[in-house]
Amino acid sequence: MYMYLPIALTSVNYLLVIGLGLVVGLLSGLFGVGGGFLMTPLLMMIGIPPTIAAATDANQIVAASSSGMFAHWRLGNVDFKMGLLLLIGGFVGGAAGVHLIKLLRATGGADFLIKITYVVMLGGVGSFMFVESLLALHKNKGAAKSAVAAKQKKEEKQSGFLRSLPMQMHFEKSGVTHSGLVPLALGVFVGVLAAIMGVGGGFLMVPVMIYMLRMPMHVVVGTSLFQILFTCVEVTFLQAYSNRTVDFILALLLLVGSVFGAQIGTVLGRKLHGDQLKILLAILVLAVTVKIVLELVMEPSLHLAYAGGH
């Protein structure tokens, strides 16, 4: 029932870890979102140090995203030009994030940064999903229409700004023209997040590609996976090399659960009502956010902790 993790230096119930992978993979398969943003906090809850949880999750995402990317590549759904620019940005961001974690581990601030980033990102995504699914459930068409109109206005404003940037280039596969700086900057942002949070960043990248870069949906998923895969490959390697925080055994246990969970989720997703499940996921995401917020603001039972994130 128990397995010793050589890098986390702790013994965990492997069925529990596989179960976590299964649940997160199931959500991933159901909703088409990445499980990374849930996996790292859940690992922290079962006693894995935050820096190891984040780095190991990046390793797990390498496996989870590689199969998806390969399938999309074979279908011709990967915009390599866009992906490469995102990737260059992602590499820079990933390296910066790993270095930032290393600096903060020395001062004891790494755990705090990981937690606060989670609060901001999960809080934002959870609230957005909650409101969106609530609107869909109530079928408030009037509100939805006004929201769409407001969104369109905002997008037009953004497009004007994006067109004014230098290095404009055409992306044939996606059928869009943008400044090369846009995917570069987005890649940096996602790379930093991948290193800090141990996530692929798909939950941010996909809406950005759809609404800001105006890429077609089928190309968005493939290109996002391409970028996530290589960013997480880099983050895994650098975390292992610089911080020694990748627990390969923990990643394997998570992988076993998540790949099967994703397949089950895909099957279930076809049978269940989408909006109800979406609101449940939003509640789950917000619950994790509240848990982390409480940990940050409530007086801890112990006022002492080991230096270096352990």
Binding site: G25, S28, G29, G32, V33, G34, G35, G36, N59, Q60, I61, V62, A63, A64, S65, S66, S67, G68, F70, A71, V199, G200, G201, G202, F203, V221, S224, L225, I228, V233, T236, F237, A240, V246, F248, A251, L252, L255, S258, V259, G261, A262, Q263, G265, T266
Partner: peptide, 23 residues
């Protein structure tokens, strides 16, 4: 760690045909 994760991901993807979870 990277190579094993890649091989495992691609292997499972090949088994299930449709691949693993997306992000």
């Amino acid at each position: 760690a990277v190579i094993v994760a890649l091989v495992a991901g691609l292997g499972v993807g090949a088994v299930f045909k449709k691949g693993g979870g997306s992000h």
